[in-house]
């Protein structure tokens, strides 16, 4: 067991955990942020995706010790009021069905749009193909990423 500091959504948490415990379980069961989901435990489905120093990572396969003192953003950290353009687009396109994988999908989409504000279909394919949605919301995810890109461009031009 070790005492580890996690910086999640700009808040610091000190957790007492096995250093090998995946970040996923520290976030969910110790810190208590349950928006990040367990899907496969072997980095195949993307449901557990969070941002680590701005990059999308599979928290089921990152030991908690590796994430110590680094900036972590989870789905709960995107906005307080669903105002993030990706959340807005997800609502407008009515993407979620069961919703279980959507935290991971949204975290992957926000990371994609941050580094590529105007993604092509191919860009979307490569950023999103690691994410499984058993409900089959893929066509709507594609549409929502495109409309989020437009929303972000509109916001940027207003500024």
């Amino acid at each position: 067991m070790a005492s580890i500091t996690l910086k999640i959504n700009s808040k610091s948490y000190t957790v007492d955990a096995d250093p090998k415990m995946p970040l996923l379980w520290a976030i969910r069961d110790i810190v208590g942020l349950t928006g990040t989901k367990y899907g496969c435990g072997i980095a195949q489905c993307g449901a557990c995706t969070v941002h680590l120093e701005g990059n999308p990572v599979r928290s089921c396969s990152v030991p908690v010790s590796v994430a110590a003192n680094k900036n972590i953003v989870t789905i709960e950290g995107l906005s307080d009021d669903n105002s993030h353009p990706v959340q807005q687009a997800w609502i407008a396109e009515q993407v979620p069905q069961c919703g279980y994988c959507q935290s991971g999908q949204i975290m992957a989409a926000t990371a994609l749009l941050k580094r590529n504000p105007n993604p092509t279909d191919k860009d979307i394919d490569s950023a999103m193909q690691g994410h499984i949605c058993r409900c089959g919301t893929y066509p709507r995810i594609r549409k929502a990423i495109k409309s989020a890109a437009q929303l972000m461009a509109q916001k940027a031009s207003v500024k």
Binding site: R28, D29, G32, L33, T34, G35, T36, K37, Y38, T74, I75, E76, L78, S79, N82, Q87, W90, I91, Q94, V95, P96, G99, Y100, Q102, S103, I106
Partner: peptide, 27 residues
């Protein structure tokens, strides 16, 4: 009409079975 559960499913607030916790709960 937009689904009433959509806002809960874009911010991690929807409580699925695996998210439910009880005081003193073991796993």
């Amino acid at each position: 009409l937009p689904r009433q559960d959509t806002p809960l499913k874009v911010n991690g607030k929807a409580v699925f079975g695996l998210d439910k916790k009880l005081p003193g709960m073991l796993y």
